[in-house]
Design a protein around this nucleic acid. Structure first.
Lengths: 111, 111
DNA sequence: GGGAGTGTATGGTTTTCATCGAACACTCTG
DNA sequence: CAGAGTGTTCGATGAAAACCATACACTCCC
């Protein structure tokens, strides 16, 4: 019947426009999530699966962090085969919170 | 000997230039502190004592919140008689984190 | 279909943080 | 100098959040 290829529940996304400032700030006020955002910003879109990030946490915690980033409108995810690949919502997030992403990405590689 | 009028320990300040992004974000990722910053932004400098803010916490917690804001380079304090009056470090903080303060002050009065 | 690879969900532990009450320190005024 | 007003410090409590290990669900490839 040629419906969909994936029978997996699609990840629920939140558009940055619906995100309160407090939520956005709280999402970025964490060292692990900052590293995720920075690494993601340095890679082409849809090129990184969740497990491909260099952060010192187990995969359960990692999955949680991505859920938080999704809930803050920072990350978009799509299922691609067995992997879930990511994209930083640069334009949309910057339209809602101008300059915020730039602050996080700028300098301070060691945090 | 005409030294100083106050024998009280002056509050320790941190200049925004020495503040890591993570610290700044964490300081602003709190509802009470956001209200403090917003109220402070709407008042003339040095016009507000710590106790004059309309937040639903006791004075102990309030004192703690001001310490966090100081540590993030957001607020400057000066002793004036028995009171401790405050000033939002607009220019300095904005030079270090351009646009961040604007995001917090903009819109969303109810958070 | 079995098995490896990948991510999510659950339950429980640990850590962090906001909060309060009470005690203390300092300033001004009567 | 006694007392009211203001803010900080201390110890304890409670809630929130990060984390892990395990178990589960789904996809692909052999």
């Amino acid at each position: 019947m040629a419906e969909r290829t994936s029978h997996r529940a699609a990840p629920e996304h939140v558009h940055p426009d619906e995100v309160p400032v407090l939520t956005a700030l709280a999402a970025l006020a964490d060292p692990v999530r900052i590293r995720l955002v920075r690494e993601l910003a340095g890679s082409p879109e849809w090129s990184r699966s969740c497990g491909s990030f260099d952060v010192p946490v187990g995969k359960a915690a990692l999955s949680h962090h991505f859920a938080v980033l999704r809930g803050a409108g920072l990350v978009e995810q799509r299922d691609e085969g067995p992997k879930r690949v990511n994209r930083l919502r640069r334009a949309e997030f910057d339209a809602r919170f101008p300059g915020l992403l730039a602050l996080v990405l700028r300098e301070e590689p060691a945090l």
